[in-house]
Computed example of a mutant assay.
Amino acid sequence: MAQNVLLTGGSGFIGKHLTNVLIQAGYSVSVLSRSHKKNTTEITYYKWDLNKNYIDENAVLNADFVIHLAGEGIVEKRWTEKRKKAILESRIKPIDLIFSVLEKNNKKLNAFISASGVGIYGAVTSHKICTEETPAANDFLGTTCQIWENAADKIGALGIRTVKIRTAIVLGKDEGFLKKVNPNFKAGFGAVLGSGKQYLPWIHIEDLSQIYCKAVSNDQMHGPYNAAVTDNTTNSRFSKILASLYGYTIWLPKIPPFILKIVLGEMSEAVLTGQRVSSEKIQKTGFEFQFTDLEKALIASIH
């Protein structure tokens, strides 16, 4: 029988793409869902409800691997205290539920693989290249990612191989980061945010999915891995390339930081700052990026 991979967040942008990649790689896939969904020949659905701390234990007991992708969007809404709490809890509660099932039943997974973010390195802009050894920052994104990863380590303490994928901005067709910025650029109103000098680590959805697949199949992988192309892309470079693909040169002035802070509040940190991120550790596993050229990655994502 095919080995089973259980996904949290399986109905999201990354989850849907990863599901197809896993199936193509020969795995069976299960998905935790808040609503009742009919099983297909390729996907088994299990019910869970984070608000009621409920999970169908069979989802975990029948799994060989768990990939945890669930979590409220970081830039979906303004960062009120209530929103910050929702962002954090939506990432931690699923791990706590899965941990309780594993501990109660003495269940040993082959691996637990959790999403994380390059935001762990902090909302600052510097020329420093962040590796997996770089300490977590003390701001909201850094603290959130650190707590997220610490929760995953609880499962690692059960003797289960645990991998954390620190993800950059994900590029993909009509989804992810581009879903937010593309309409303005397509309409001819693209603009550089702030100084434009802030680094913008990125990865194409195809490469990210393959990294998760590798984390499943490679039993030597453990701990954190940066999932980002190391090409020193800045917000300015990204914006100019995207505008050029729509046939124009950016004509609007840079959007001043104070405007973004008024509109976005504290969340403006996520777009006004950014650091360089090293991909050396994941490449040492033998992983090869399919998309390392930003222009080609954008072309594949908008056409």
Rank of each mutant, 00 (worst) to 15 (best):
L102R: 15
D207F: 11
I262H: 00
S35P: 04
S126E: 00
A136Q: 13
T273R: 11
G188M: 07
G159D: 06
K128P: 01
R276C: 10
L69T: 06
L50P: 03
T44F: 03
F99C: 08
A115G: 05
I255P: 02
F177T: 01
A191G: 07
L193K: 07
E133G: 00
S268H: 03
G142E: 15
G188V: 05
G73S: 00
A300I: 05
F99A: 13
H204M: 11
V21I: 12
L50V: 11
I241P: 14
S28W: 08
I55R: 03
D49N: 15
H36S: 14
Q275L: 15
D219C: 05
V192W: 09
N106W: 01
G159N: 08
V271S: 01
N106R: 05
Q290A: 04
I282F: 03
I211S: 00
N218S: 09
E280P: 01
Y225R: 01
F112I: 00
L97T: 06
L264Y: 07
S116Y: 09
A115M: 02
L242V: 14
K38M: 03
P201L: 15
L245Q: 09
N4M: 13
N58Y: 09
N58S: 12
T234G: 12
F189M: 07
A215K: 00
L7G: 09
L171T: 12
V216T: 04
I98D: 01
V75D: 00
G274R: 10
T249G: 00
K37V: 04
L7E: 07
V60Q: 03
S209G: 15
E72Y: 00
S301Y: 12
N4P: 02
K16D: 10
T233H: 07
K52C: 12
S239Q: 14
I98R: 09
C130P: 10
L102N: 12
S279C: 15
A187M: 08
A136H: 15
S268G: 00
S244F: 02
I129K: 06
K38P: 02
K77S: 02
L200A: 13
T292D: 08
D231A: 05
G122C: 08
G247R: 04
M221C: 03
G196L: 11
A243T: 06
T234I: 14
K107V: 10
G26T: 08
G156H: 06
N150H: 13
N62G: 02
S279K: 06
A168V: 08
Q198N: 14
V271Q: 08
E57I: 11
E149S: 07
G119L: 08
K254C: 03
V60P: 05
I95V: 14
I43P: 09
A297M: 09
K77P: 01
S33P: 06
K164A: 03
V118I: 12
T144E: 13
S11L: 15
S209E: 11
E42H: 13
C145G: 14
V229D: 03
T167S: 14
V5I: 11
K37P: 14
K93Y: 08
W251C: 09
F112L: 02
